[in-house]
Design a protein around this nucleic acid. Structure first.
Lengths: 294, 294
DNA sequence: ATTGTACCATTAGATTTTCTTGCGCTTCCC
DNA sequence: GGGAAGCGCAAGAAAATCTAATGGTACAAT
Protein backbone atom coordinates (compact mmCIF):
# COMPACT_ATOMS: atom_id res chain seq x y z
CA UNK A 1 0.00 0.00 0.00
CA UNK A 2 1.89 2.92 -1.35
CA UNK A 3 0.13 5.48 0.81
CA UNK A 4 1.37 3.99 4.08
CA UNK A 5 4.90 3.94 2.80
CA UNK A 6 7.06 6.74 4.19
CA UNK A 7 8.83 8.98 1.68
CA UNK A 8 11.57 6.88 0.13
CA UNK A 9 14.25 9.50 0.61
CA UNK A 10 13.65 9.36 4.34
CA UNK A 11 14.09 5.58 4.26
CA UNK A 12 17.24 5.91 2.21
CA UNK A 13 18.69 8.36 4.72
CA UNK A 14 17.74 6.16 7.65
CA UNK A 15 19.15 2.97 6.15
CA UNK A 16 22.44 4.63 5.33
CA UNK A 17 22.74 6.10 8.82
CA UNK A 18 21.94 2.76 10.39
CA UNK A 19 24.38 0.88 8.21
CA UNK A 20 27.22 3.38 8.69
CA UNK A 21 26.53 4.09 12.35
CA UNK A 22 26.35 7.87 12.10
CA UNK A 23 24.52 10.74 10.49
CA UNK A 24 27.85 12.13 9.40
CA UNK A 25 28.73 8.90 7.64
CA UNK A 26 25.36 8.71 5.92
CA UNK A 27 25.70 12.31 4.82
CA UNK A 28 29.06 11.57 3.29
CA UNK A 29 27.69 8.60 1.39
CA UNK A 30 24.63 10.42 0.11
CA UNK A 31 26.41 13.72 -0.55
CA UNK A 32 24.34 15.73 1.86
CA UNK A 33 25.02 17.33 5.24
CA UNK A 34 24.45 15.39 8.46
CA UNK A 35 21.75 17.93 9.19
CA UNK A 36 19.77 16.74 6.19
CA UNK A 37 20.03 13.14 7.42
CA UNK A 38 18.95 14.17 10.90
CA UNK A 39 15.84 15.88 9.58
CA UNK A 40 14.84 12.93 7.44
CA UNK A 41 15.17 10.48 10.31
CA UNK A 42 13.34 12.74 12.68
CA UNK A 43 10.49 12.99 10.18
CA UNK A 44 10.48 9.21 9.70
CA UNK A 45 10.20 8.63 13.43
CA UNK A 46 7.36 11.13 13.58
CA UNK A 47 5.57 9.31 10.80
CA UNK A 48 6.15 5.85 12.24
CA UNK A 49 5.53 6.86 15.82
CA UNK A 50 8.60 4.87 16.87
CA UNK A 51 12.14 5.78 17.86
CA UNK A 52 14.75 4.34 15.55
CA UNK A 53 17.84 5.86 17.15
CA UNK A 54 18.88 6.70 20.67
CA UNK A 55 20.39 10.16 20.61
CA UNK A 56 23.62 10.95 22.40
CA UNK A 57 25.63 14.10 22.22
CA UNK A 58 28.56 12.27 20.67
CA UNK A 59 26.66 10.13 18.29
CA UNK A 60 23.54 8.08 17.80
CA UNK A 61 22.90 4.44 18.53
CA UNK A 62 20.31 2.32 16.79
CA UNK A 63 17.47 0.97 18.84
CA UNK A 64 16.68 -2.72 18.44
CA UNK A 65 13.69 -1.75 16.40
CA UNK A 66 15.83 0.55 14.30
CA UNK A 67 18.32 -2.19 13.63
CA UNK A 68 15.64 -4.63 12.51
CA UNK A 69 14.03 -2.04 10.27
CA UNK A 70 17.36 -1.06 8.75
CA UNK A 71 18.20 -4.68 8.00
CA UNK A 72 14.97 -5.18 6.15
CA UNK A 73 15.29 -1.88 4.31
CA UNK A 74 18.84 -2.83 3.42
CA UNK A 75 17.57 -6.01 1.84
CA UNK A 76 14.97 -4.07 -0.12
CA UNK A 77 17.51 -1.54 -1.36
CA UNK A 78 19.79 -4.42 -2.23
CA UNK A 79 17.04 -5.86 -4.40
CA UNK A 80 16.58 -2.50 -6.06
CA UNK A 81 20.29 -2.21 -6.77
CA UNK A 82 20.50 -5.76 -8.11
CA UNK A 83 17.44 -5.26 -10.30
CA UNK A 84 18.81 -1.99 -11.57
CA UNK A 85 22.18 -3.52 -12.30
CA UNK A 86 20.54 -6.41 -14.16
CA UNK A 87 18.31 -4.18 -16.23
CA UNK A 88 20.98 -1.63 -16.97
CA UNK A 89 23.34 -4.50 -17.64
CA UNK A 90 26.30 -2.77 -16.06
CA UNK A 91 26.74 -4.45 -12.72
CA UNK A 92 28.26 -1.97 -10.32
CA UNK A 93 28.92 0.48 -13.10
CA UNK A 94 26.93 3.65 -13.13
CA UNK A 95 25.64 5.95 -15.82
CA UNK A 96 26.77 9.52 -16.18
CA UNK A 97 24.40 11.52 -18.35
CA UNK A 98 25.94 14.61 -19.91
CA UNK A 99 24.30 17.23 -22.06
CA UNK A 100 26.82 18.08 -24.76
CA UNK A 101 26.70 19.83 -28.14
CA UNK A 102 26.65 17.23 -30.86
CA UNK A 103 29.83 18.43 -32.45
CA UNK A 104 31.81 18.55 -29.27
CA UNK A 105 30.60 15.09 -28.36
CA UNK A 106 31.53 13.67 -31.74
CA UNK A 107 34.68 15.58 -32.43
CA UNK A 108 36.25 15.96 -29.05
CA UNK A 109 34.87 13.44 -26.56
CA UNK A 110 34.18 10.42 -28.74
CA UNK A 111 37.80 10.19 -29.98
CA UNK A 112 38.95 10.08 -26.38
CA UNK A 113 36.31 7.80 -24.94
CA UNK A 114 38.69 4.88 -24.85
CA UNK A 115 40.91 6.87 -22.51
CA UNK A 116 38.03 7.70 -20.23
CA UNK A 117 36.79 4.12 -20.18
CA UNK A 118 40.26 2.85 -19.42
CA UNK A 119 40.71 5.16 -16.48
CA UNK A 120 37.10 4.90 -15.25
CA UNK A 121 35.80 1.42 -16.07
CA UNK A 122 32.90 1.76 -13.65
CA UNK A 123 31.40 4.85 -15.27
CA UNK A 124 29.32 4.61 -18.45
CA UNK A 125 28.74 7.82 -20.33
CA UNK A 126 25.58 8.91 -22.02
CA UNK A 127 26.08 11.95 -24.18
CA UNK A 128 22.90 13.68 -25.18
CA UNK A 129 22.43 16.74 -27.31
CA UNK A 130 18.83 17.09 -26.17
CA UNK A 131 17.65 19.27 -23.35
CA UNK A 132 15.82 16.95 -20.95
CA UNK A 133 14.87 19.60 -18.47
CA UNK A 134 16.09 20.44 -15.01
CA UNK A 135 17.73 17.75 -13.01
CA UNK A 136 17.49 15.04 -15.62
CA UNK A 137 21.13 15.10 -16.62
CA UNK A 138 24.14 14.97 -14.35
CA UNK A 139 26.28 17.56 -16.05
CA UNK A 140 26.64 19.60 -19.22
CA UNK A 141 29.28 20.97 -21.49
CA UNK A 142 28.44 24.26 -23.04
CA UNK A 143 30.12 26.87 -25.17
CA UNK A 144 29.97 30.33 -23.69
CA UNK A 145 31.37 32.76 -21.23
CA UNK A 146 31.10 30.88 -17.97
CA UNK A 147 28.45 32.99 -16.39
CA UNK A 148 25.62 30.48 -16.03
CA UNK A 149 23.49 31.03 -12.95
CA UNK A 150 23.35 28.33 -10.33
CA UNK A 151 25.95 26.19 -12.00
CA UNK A 152 29.51 25.55 -11.13
CA UNK A 153 31.43 26.27 -14.30
CA UNK A 154 34.83 24.79 -14.98
CA UNK A 155 36.76 26.14 -17.95
CA UNK A 156 37.72 23.33 -20.30
CA UNK A 157 38.94 24.79 -23.57
CA UNK A 158 39.51 28.16 -25.06
CA UNK A 159 38.97 28.03 -28.75
CA UNK A 160 40.66 29.50 -31.75
CA UNK A 161 38.91 30.18 -35.01
CA UNK A 162 40.56 29.91 -38.42
CA UNK A 163 39.84 28.67 -41.93
CA UNK A 164 40.39 25.01 -42.79
CA UNK A 165 39.97 22.93 -45.91
CA UNK A 166 41.42 19.88 -47.65
CA UNK A 167 45.06 20.02 -48.78
CA UNK A 168 43.91 19.89 -52.36
CA UNK A 169 41.52 22.79 -51.87
CA UNK A 170 44.31 24.71 -50.16
CA UNK A 171 46.51 24.54 -53.23
CA UNK A 172 44.65 27.49 -54.72
CA UNK A 173 44.68 29.54 -51.54
CA UNK A 174 47.82 31.65 -51.25
CA UNK A 175 46.34 34.55 -49.33
CA UNK A 176 43.01 35.40 -47.66
CA UNK A 177 42.09 37.45 -50.72
CA UNK A 178 41.88 34.19 -52.65
CA UNK A 179 38.81 33.25 -50.62
CA UNK A 180 36.83 35.61 -52.81
CA UNK A 181 36.48 33.00 -55.53
CA UNK A 182 35.84 30.03 -53.26
CA UNK A 183 32.93 28.49 -51.38
CA UNK A 184 32.65 29.57 -47.77
CA UNK A 185 31.24 27.09 -45.24
CA UNK A 186 29.45 28.78 -42.33
CA UNK A 187 28.36 27.62 -38.88
CA UNK A 188 26.37 30.55 -37.51
CA UNK A 189 25.79 31.14 -33.85
CA UNK A 190 29.22 32.19 -32.69
CA UNK A 191 30.58 35.70 -32.23
CA UNK A 192 33.47 34.77 -34.46
CA UNK A 193 32.33 34.24 -38.01
CA UNK A 194 33.76 34.88 -41.45
CA UNK A 195 33.20 38.62 -41.08
CA UNK A 196 35.11 38.68 -37.85
CA UNK A 197 38.02 36.66 -39.16
CA UNK A 198 38.31 38.64 -42.37
CA UNK A 199 38.26 41.90 -40.45
CA UNK A 200 40.93 40.43 -38.20
CA UNK A 201 43.25 39.83 -41.15
CA UNK A 202 42.34 43.13 -42.81
CA UNK A 203 40.61 41.74 -45.90
CA UNK A 204 37.51 43.38 -47.35
CA UNK A 205 35.25 42.91 -50.31
CA UNK A 206 34.41 39.22 -49.79
CA UNK A 207 30.71 38.34 -49.85
CA UNK A 208 30.19 36.51 -46.57
CA UNK A 209 26.45 36.18 -47.13
CA UNK A 210 27.16 33.51 -49.74
CA UNK A 211 28.13 29.90 -49.22
CA UNK A 212 26.64 26.97 -47.29
CA UNK A 213 25.28 27.24 -43.78
CA UNK A 214 25.10 24.47 -41.19
CA UNK A 215 23.34 24.38 -37.86
CA UNK A 216 25.99 22.15 -36.38
CA UNK A 217 29.76 22.27 -36.74
CA UNK A 218 30.03 18.59 -37.52
CA UNK A 219 28.03 19.06 -40.70
CA UNK A 220 30.38 21.82 -41.83
CA UNK A 221 33.40 19.74 -40.89
CA UNK A 222 32.12 16.89 -43.02
CA UNK A 223 31.49 19.25 -45.94
CA UNK A 224 35.02 20.57 -45.64
CA UNK A 225 36.43 17.04 -45.54
CA UNK A 226 34.45 16.33 -48.69
CA UNK A 227 36.18 19.29 -50.33
CA UNK A 228 33.05 21.39 -50.63
CA UNK A 229 34.66 24.59 -49.44
CA UNK A 230 36.55 26.39 -46.73
CA UNK A 231 35.18 26.10 -43.24
CA UNK A 232 35.76 28.60 -40.50
CA UNK A 233 36.79 25.95 -38.01
CA UNK A 234 37.43 25.89 -34.29
CA UNK A 235 40.33 24.22 -32.62
CA UNK A 236 38.53 21.88 -30.30
CA UNK A 237 36.42 20.37 -33.02
CA UNK A 238 38.99 19.66 -35.71
CA UNK A 239 42.23 18.82 -34.01
CA UNK A 240 42.11 15.19 -35.13
CA UNK A 241 41.39 16.24 -38.71
CA UNK A 242 44.29 18.67 -38.58
CA UNK A 243 46.60 16.07 -37.06
CA UNK A 244 45.74 13.47 -39.67
CA UNK A 245 46.07 15.86 -42.57
CA UNK A 246 42.47 15.42 -43.67
CA UNK A 247 42.14 19.15 -43.15
CA UNK A 248 44.76 21.90 -43.21
CA UNK A 249 44.86 25.55 -42.26
CA UNK A 250 45.75 27.41 -45.46
CA UNK A 251 46.53 30.59 -43.50
CA UNK A 252 48.33 31.02 -40.23
CA UNK A 253 46.13 33.76 -38.75
CA UNK A 254 43.94 32.49 -35.93
CA UNK A 255 41.28 34.37 -34.05
CA UNK A 256 41.12 33.98 -30.27
CA UNK A 257 37.43 34.00 -29.37
CA UNK A 258 35.78 35.26 -26.24
CA UNK A 259 33.86 32.04 -25.68
CA UNK A 260 35.13 28.74 -24.37
CA UNK A 261 33.87 25.27 -23.62
CA UNK A 262 32.81 24.89 -20.01
CA UNK A 263 31.92 21.96 -17.85
CA UNK A 264 28.74 22.71 -15.88
CA UNK A 265 27.04 21.05 -12.95
CA UNK A 266 24.87 22.14 -10.08
CA UNK A 267 26.73 22.26 -6.75
CA UNK A 268 24.84 19.18 -5.55
CA UNK A 269 25.62 17.16 -8.67
CA UNK A 270 29.16 18.48 -8.76
CA UNK A 271 29.84 16.71 -5.48
CA UNK A 272 28.88 13.28 -6.71
CA UNK A 273 31.89 11.07 -7.36
CA UNK A 274 31.03 10.26 -10.97
CA UNK A 275 30.60 13.90 -11.92
CA UNK A 276 33.80 14.81 -10.12
CA UNK A 277 35.64 12.00 -11.84
CA UNK A 278 34.47 13.05 -15.29
CA UNK A 279 35.27 16.69 -14.73
CA UNK A 280 38.74 15.88 -13.45
CA UNK A 281 39.33 13.62 -16.41
CA UNK A 282 38.28 16.38 -18.80
CA UNK A 283 40.64 18.78 -17.07
CA UNK A 284 43.46 16.32 -17.45
CA UNK A 285 42.72 16.09 -21.14
CA UNK A 286 42.76 19.83 -21.64
CA UNK A 287 45.20 22.59 -20.90
CA UNK A 288 45.41 23.62 -17.22
CA UNK A 289 42.61 26.04 -16.33
CA UNK A 290 41.11 27.54 -13.17
CA UNK A 291 37.63 26.59 -12.02
CA UNK A 292 35.36 29.57 -11.88
CA UNK A 293 32.44 29.43 -9.51
CA UNK A 294 29.46 31.04 -11.10
CA UNK B 1 26.04 1.09 -4.26
CA UNK B 2 23.86 4.02 -3.55
CA UNK B 3 25.34 6.24 -6.23
CA UNK B 4 24.31 3.95 -9.09
CA UNK B 5 20.79 3.77 -7.79
CA UNK B 6 18.33 5.97 -9.69
CA UNK B 7 16.29 8.46 -7.68
CA UNK B 8 13.80 6.40 -5.72
CA UNK B 9 10.83 8.53 -6.69
CA UNK B 10 11.50 7.70 -10.33
CA UNK B 11 11.48 4.01 -9.46
CA UNK B 12 8.30 4.38 -7.49
CA UNK B 13 6.61 6.07 -10.44
CA UNK B 14 7.85 3.44 -12.86
CA UNK B 15 6.79 0.49 -10.71
CA UNK B 16 3.31 1.90 -10.22
CA UNK B 17 2.89 2.56 -13.94
CA UNK B 18 4.09 -0.90 -14.78
CA UNK B 19 1.84 -2.56 -12.24
CA UNK B 20 -1.25 -0.55 -13.18
CA UNK B 21 -0.58 -0.54 -16.91
CA UNK B 22 -0.85 3.18 -17.45
CA UNK B 23 0.62 6.51 -16.51
CA UNK B 24 -2.84 7.74 -15.69
CA UNK B 25 -3.39 4.86 -13.29
CA UNK B 26 -0.05 5.41 -11.62
CA UNK B 27 -0.80 9.10 -11.27
CA UNK B 28 -4.08 8.33 -9.59
CA UNK B 29 -2.42 5.99 -7.12
CA UNK B 30 0.40 8.37 -6.28
CA UNK B 31 -1.75 11.50 -6.32
CA UNK B 32 0.17 13.20 -9.09
CA UNK B 33 -0.64 14.00 -12.69
CA UNK B 34 0.18 11.52 -15.46
CA UNK B 35 2.59 14.17 -16.71
CA UNK B 36 4.66 13.78 -13.55
CA UNK B 37 4.78 10.01 -14.06
CA UNK B 38 5.77 10.45 -17.70
CA UNK B 39 8.65 12.71 -16.80
CA UNK B 40 9.95 10.39 -14.11
CA UNK B 41 9.92 7.38 -16.39
CA UNK B 42 11.55 9.29 -19.21
CA UNK B 43 14.29 10.36 -16.84
CA UNK B 44 14.73 6.81 -15.57
CA UNK B 45 15.11 5.51 -19.12
CA UNK B 46 17.64 8.24 -19.79
CA UNK B 47 19.59 7.25 -16.72
CA UNK B 48 19.45 3.51 -17.41
CA UNK B 49 20.00 3.83 -21.11
CA UNK B 50 17.19 1.33 -21.68
CA UNK B 51 13.58 1.58 -22.82
CA UNK B 52 11.14 0.35 -20.22
CA UNK B 53 7.92 1.15 -22.09
CA UNK B 54 6.85 1.11 -25.70
CA UNK B 55 4.98 4.28 -26.35
CA UNK B 56 1.70 4.33 -28.23
CA UNK B 57 -0.67 7.18 -28.72
CA UNK B 58 -3.39 5.36 -26.81
CA UNK B 59 -1.29 4.04 -24.04
CA UNK B 60 2.01 2.48 -23.13
CA UNK B 61 3.09 -1.12 -23.09
CA UNK B 62 5.86 -2.52 -20.96
CA UNK B 63 8.87 -3.91 -22.71
CA UNK B 64 10.06 -7.33 -21.55
CA UNK B 65 12.90 -5.62 -19.78
CA UNK B 66 10.49 -3.20 -18.19
CA UNK B 67 8.30 -6.01 -16.95
CA UNK B 68 11.21 -7.84 -15.36
CA UNK B 69 12.49 -4.67 -13.73
CA UNK B 70 9.05 -3.76 -12.41
CA UNK B 71 8.61 -7.22 -10.90
CA UNK B 72 11.87 -6.95 -9.03
CA UNK B 73 11.16 -3.41 -7.92
CA UNK B 74 7.72 -4.56 -6.80
CA UNK B 75 9.34 -7.17 -4.60
CA UNK B 76 11.68 -4.57 -3.14
CA UNK B 77 8.85 -2.17 -2.42
CA UNK B 78 6.90 -5.05 -0.93
CA UNK B 79 9.78 -5.67 1.46
CA UNK B 80 9.82 -2.01 2.36
CA UNK B 81 6.10 -2.00 3.05
CA UNK B 82 6.28 -5.19 5.11
CA UNK B 83 9.25 -3.92 7.10
CA UNK B 84 7.51 -0.62 7.68
CA UNK B 85 4.33 -2.36 8.77
CA UNK B 86 6.27 -4.58 11.15
CA UNK B 87 8.21 -1.72 12.67
CA UNK B 88 5.26 0.59 12.91
CA UNK B 89 3.21 -2.30 14.18
CA UNK B 90 0.10 -1.30 12.29
CA UNK B 91 -0.10 -3.69 9.38
CA UNK B 92 -1.85 -1.95 6.54
CA UNK B 93 -2.79 0.91 8.77
CA UNK B 94 -1.20 4.24 8.09
CA UNK B 95 -0.23 7.18 10.22
CA UNK B 96 -1.78 10.57 9.85
CA UNK B 97 0.31 13.25 11.51
CA UNK B 98 -1.60 16.39 12.42
CA UNK B 99 -0.29 19.59 13.92
CA UNK B 100 -2.93 20.67 16.46
CA UNK B 101 -3.00 23.08 19.39
CA UNK B 102 -2.62 21.10 22.58
CA UNK B 103 -5.93 22.21 23.98
CA UNK B 104 -7.91 21.44 20.90
CA UNK B 105 -6.27 18.03 20.69
CA UNK B 106 -7.02 17.24 24.31
CA UNK B 107 -10.37 18.87 24.68
CA UNK B 108 -11.98 18.31 21.31
CA UNK B 109 -10.31 15.52 19.38
CA UNK B 110 -9.25 13.14 22.12
CA UNK B 111 -12.79 12.73 23.47
CA UNK B 112 -13.93 11.72 20.01
CA UNK B 113 -11.03 9.53 19.00
CA UNK B 114 -13.03 6.40 19.57
CA UNK B 115 -15.47 7.57 16.93
CA UNK B 116 -12.70 8.27 14.46
CA UNK B 117 -11.04 4.95 15.09
CA UNK B 118 -14.33 3.13 14.72
CA UNK B 119 -15.05 4.69 11.38
CA UNK B 120 -11.42 4.62 10.13
CA UNK B 121 -9.72 1.59 11.64
CA UNK B 122 -6.88 1.78 9.15
CA UNK B 123 -5.78 5.29 10.04
CA UNK B 124 -3.73 5.98 13.16
CA UNK B 125 -3.55 9.55 14.32
CA UNK B 126 -0.56 11.33 15.68
CA UNK B 127 -1.43 14.69 17.17
CA UNK B 128 1.50 16.96 17.72
CA UNK B 129 1.60 20.43 19.13
CA UNK B 130 5.14 20.97 17.87
CA UNK B 131 6.07 22.62 14.61
CA UNK B 132 8.19 20.08 12.73
CA UNK B 133 8.82 22.26 9.73
CA UNK B 134 7.49 22.21 6.20
CA UNK B 135 6.17 18.97 4.84
CA UNK B 136 6.72 16.94 7.96
CA UNK B 137 3.10 16.77 9.00
CA UNK B 138 0.13 15.80 6.88
CA UNK B 139 -2.31 18.42 8.06
CA UNK B 140 -2.92 21.00 10.73
CA UNK B 141 -5.74 22.47 12.74
CA UNK B 142 -5.30 26.11 13.54
CA UNK B 143 -7.30 28.85 15.11
CA UNK B 144 -7.60 31.92 12.96
CA UNK B 145 -9.30 33.59 10.08
CA UNK B 146 -8.80 31.12 7.31
CA UNK B 147 -6.43 33.19 5.24
CA UNK B 148 -3.31 31.05 5.32
CA UNK B 149 -1.26 31.19 2.16
CA UNK B 150 -0.75 28.05 0.11
CA UNK B 151 -3.06 25.99 2.26
CA UNK B 152 -6.52 24.72 1.63
CA UNK B 153 -8.51 25.82 4.67
CA UNK B 154 -11.71 24.12 5.72
CA UNK B 155 -13.79 25.80 8.41
CA UNK B 156 -14.39 23.45 11.29
CA UNK B 157 -15.77 25.39 14.23
CA UNK B 158 -16.77 28.91 15.03
CA UNK B 159 -16.22 29.61 18.64
CA UNK B 160 -18.08 31.46 21.31
CA UNK B 161 -16.42 33.01 24.31
CA UNK B 162 -17.99 33.26 27.73
CA UNK B 163 -17.10 32.91 31.42
CA UNK B 164 -17.17 29.45 33.00
CA UNK B 165 -16.49 28.14 36.49
CA UNK B 166 -17.53 25.37 38.85
CA UNK B 167 -21.17 25.31 40.00
CA UNK B 168 -19.99 26.08 43.51
CA UNK B 169 -18.00 29.06 42.35
CA UNK B 170 -21.02 30.24 40.38
CA UNK B 171 -23.15 30.45 43.50
CA UNK B 172 -21.65 33.82 44.27
CA UNK B 173 -21.97 35.16 40.75
CA UNK B 174 -25.36 36.74 40.14
CA UNK B 175 -24.29 39.31 37.59
CA UNK B 176 -21.11 40.21 35.69
CA UNK B 177 -20.42 42.96 38.23
CA UNK B 178 -19.80 40.21 40.79
CA UNK B 179 -16.64 39.28 38.90
CA UNK B 180 -14.96 42.29 40.51
CA UNK B 181 -14.25 40.35 43.69
CA UNK B 182 -13.28 37.07 42.06
CA UNK B 183 -10.20 35.58 40.44
CA UNK B 184 -10.07 35.90 36.70
CA UNK B 185 -8.36 33.14 34.70
CA UNK B 186 -6.81 34.37 31.43
CA UNK B 187 -5.58 32.66 28.29
CA UNK B 188 -3.99 35.49 26.31
CA UNK B 189 -3.53 35.36 22.58
CA UNK B 190 -7.08 35.70 21.32
CA UNK B 191 -8.85 38.83 20.17
CA UNK B 192 -11.59 38.03 22.63
CA UNK B 193 -10.37 38.39 26.15
CA UNK B 194 -11.87 39.55 29.41
CA UNK B 195 -11.80 43.19 28.28
CA UNK B 196 -13.73 42.33 25.18
CA UNK B 197 -16.33 40.29 26.97
CA UNK B 198 -16.87 42.83 29.72
CA UNK B 199 -17.26 45.59 27.14
CA UNK B 200 -19.71 43.38 25.33
CA UNK B 201 -21.93 43.11 28.40
CA UNK B 202 -21.42 46.75 29.32
CA UNK B 203 -19.53 46.28 32.54
CA UNK B 204 -16.66 48.55 33.55
CA UNK B 205 -14.33 48.98 36.47
CA UNK B 206 -13.06 45.43 36.71
CA UNK B 207 -9.27 45.05 36.82
CA UNK B 208 -8.52 42.67 33.97
CA UNK B 209 -4.78 42.93 34.49
CA UNK B 210 -5.11 40.81 37.63
CA UNK B 211 -5.62 37.08 37.90
CA UNK B 212 -3.78 34.01 36.59
CA UNK B 213 -2.51 33.71 33.05
CA UNK B 214 -1.97 30.50 31.10
CA UNK B 215 -0.22 29.94 27.82
CA UNK B 216 -2.57 27.13 26.92
CA UNK B 217 -6.31 26.84 27.37
CA UNK B 218 -6.12 23.40 28.88
CA UNK B 219 -4.20 24.77 31.83
CA UNK B 220 -6.85 27.39 32.46
CA UNK B 221 -9.59 24.83 32.06
CA UNK B 222 -7.95 22.66 34.69
CA UNK B 223 -7.60 25.64 37.02
CA UNK B 224 -11.28 26.42 36.56
CA UNK B 225 -12.23 22.81 37.22
CA UNK B 226 -10.16 23.03 40.39
CA UNK B 227 -12.26 26.03 41.46
CA UNK B 228 -9.42 28.50 41.20
CA UNK B 229 -11.41 31.18 39.43
CA UNK B 230 -13.54 32.09 36.44
CA UNK B 231 -12.17 31.25 33.05
CA UNK B 232 -13.06 33.04 29.88
CA UNK B 233 -13.74 29.82 28.05
CA UNK B 234 -14.40 28.91 24.41
CA UNK B 235 -17.09 26.58 23.22
CA UNK B 236 -14.98 24.05 21.41
CA UNK B 237 -12.70 23.40 24.32
CA UNK B 238 -15.15 22.97 27.19
CA UNK B 239 -18.25 21.40 25.76
CA UNK B 240 -17.67 18.13 27.62
CA UNK B 241 -17.09 19.97 30.87
CA UNK B 242 -20.28 21.92 30.33
CA UNK B 243 -22.22 18.81 29.43
CA UNK B 244 -21.03 16.95 32.52
CA UNK B 245 -21.65 19.84 34.84
CA UNK B 246 -18.04 20.08 35.91
CA UNK B 247 -18.17 23.64 34.61
CA UNK B 248 -21.11 25.97 34.20
CA UNK B 249 -21.70 29.30 32.51
CA UNK B 250 -22.78 31.70 35.27
CA UNK B 251 -23.99 34.25 32.71
CA UNK B 252 -25.85 33.74 29.48
CA UNK B 253 -24.02 36.37 27.40
CA UNK B 254 -21.72 34.82 24.84
CA UNK B 255 -19.28 36.58 22.55
CA UNK B 256 -19.08 35.45 18.92
CA UNK B 257 -15.46 35.74 17.92
CA UNK B 258 -13.95 36.50 14.56
CA UNK B 259 -11.66 33.52 14.62
CA UNK B 260 -12.49 29.87 14.08
CA UNK B 261 -10.85 26.52 14.04
CA UNK B 262 -9.73 25.51 10.57
CA UNK B 263 -8.46 22.34 9.03
CA UNK B 264 -5.40 23.05 6.88
CA UNK B 265 -3.49 21.04 4.32
CA UNK B 266 -1.47 21.79 1.23
CA UNK B 267 -3.32 20.97 -2.01
CA UNK B 268 -1.05 17.98 -2.58
CA UNK B 269 -1.54 16.58 0.91
CA UNK B 270 -5.23 17.42 0.79
CA UNK B 271 -5.65 14.94 -2.04
CA UNK B 272 -4.29 11.99 -0.14
CA UNK B 273 -7.01 9.61 1.04
CA UNK B 274 -6.08 9.68 4.71
CA UNK B 275 -6.10 13.46 4.87
CA UNK B 276 -9.38 13.56 2.99
CA UNK B 277 -10.88 10.98 5.32
CA UNK B 278 -9.87 12.85 8.44
CA UNK B 279 -11.11 16.18 7.16
CA UNK B 280 -14.44 14.69 6.14
CA UNK B 281 -14.77 13.05 9.54
CA UNK B 282 -14.06 16.33 11.27
CA UNK B 283 -16.71 18.01 9.15
CA UNK B 284 -19.21 15.33 10.09
CA UNK B 285 -18.43 15.97 13.73
CA UNK B 286 -18.93 19.71 13.45
CA UNK B 287 -21.69 21.98 12.22
CA UNK B 288 -22.06 22.17 8.42
CA UNK B 289 -19.63 24.68 6.97
CA UNK B 290 -18.35 25.73 3.57
CA UNK B 291 -14.76 24.99 2.53
CA UNK B 292 -12.87 28.15 1.78
CA UNK B 293 -9.96 27.91 -0.59
CA UNK B 294 -7.14 30.09 0.61
C1' DA C 1 -16.03 10.98 -42.29
C1' DT C 2 -16.49 13.30 -38.08
C1' DT C 3 -16.50 13.83 -33.23
C1' DG C 4 -15.45 12.69 -28.60
C1' DT C 5 -12.63 10.31 -25.34
C1' DA C 6 -8.49 8.59 -23.49
C1' DC C 7 -3.81 8.59 -23.16
C1' DC C 8 0.97 10.29 -23.43
C1' DA C 9 4.70 14.08 -24.61
C1' DT C 10 6.60 18.41 -23.87
C1' DT C 11 7.67 22.85 -21.87
C1' DA C 12 7.42 26.52 -18.64
C1' DG C 13 6.64 27.85 -14.37
C1' DA C 14 4.73 26.86 -9.64
C1' DT C 15 5.01 24.17 -5.60
C1' DT C 16 7.00 21.04 -2.57
C1' DT C 17 10.75 18.69 -0.83
C1' DT C 18 15.26 18.59 0.35
C1' DC C 19 19.24 20.63 1.68
C1' DT C 20 22.61 24.09 3.52
C1' DT C 21 24.01 27.31 6.73
C1' DG C 22 24.85 29.09 11.10
C1' DC C 23 24.72 28.44 15.64
C1' DG C 24 24.37 25.95 19.85
C1' DC C 25 24.98 22.06 22.75
C1' DT C 26 27.24 17.82 24.73
C1' DT C 27 30.70 14.23 25.06
C1' DC C 28 35.17 12.62 24.81
C1' DC C 29 40.07 12.85 24.22
C1' DC C 30 44.48 15.09 24.71
C1' DG D 1 40.98 23.78 29.56
C1' DG D 2 40.79 23.36 24.72
C1' DG D 3 39.89 20.99 20.48
C1' DA D 4 37.44 17.65 17.79
C1' DA D 5 33.43 15.21 16.67
C1' DG D 6 28.73 14.58 16.49
C1' DC D 7 23.83 15.87 16.52
C1' DG D 8 19.69 19.37 16.99
C1' DC D 9 17.25 23.26 15.43
C1' DA D 10 15.42 27.00 12.59
C1' DA D 11 15.54 29.88 8.64
C1' DG D 12 16.23 30.35 4.11
C1' DA D 13 18.30 28.58 -0.37
C1' DA D 14 18.51 25.06 -3.75
C1' DA D 15 16.86 21.14 -5.97
C1' DA D 16 13.37 18.05 -7.09
C1' DT D 17 8.82 17.34 -8.21
C1' DC D 18 4.63 18.62 -9.88
C1' DT D 19 0.90 21.17 -12.38
C1' DA D 20 -0.98 23.57 -16.20
C1' DA D 21 -1.45 24.19 -20.81
C1' DT D 22 -1.06 22.65 -25.22
C1' DG D 23 -0.44 19.38 -28.78
C1' DG D 24 -0.50 14.96 -30.78
C1' DT D 25 -2.36 10.17 -31.91
C1' DA D 26 -5.36 6.04 -31.62
C1' DC D 27 -9.65 4.24 -31.10
C1' DA D 28 -14.63 4.00 -30.47
C1' DA D 29 -19.06 5.86 -31.34
C1' DT D 30 -22.06 8.19 -34.32
Amino acid sequence: MASARPPLNWLRAFEAAARLGSFAGAGAELNVTPSAISQHIRALELRLGKELFDRHANGVRLTDRGRRYAEELGRAFGLIDEATARIAGRGTREMLVVHVPTSFASQWIAPRLDLFRASHPTIDLRLTALDHGEGKVDAAIEFGWGNWPKREATLLLRDETFPVCTPKYAESLNSPEDLRARDLLHVPGYDEDWDTWLAHVGVTGIDTSAGSFFDQSIMGIRAAIEGKGVLLGRTALIERELASGLLVAPFEQRLRGAGSYWFLATPQKARTPKVTAFRDWLLNMTAPVAAVGA
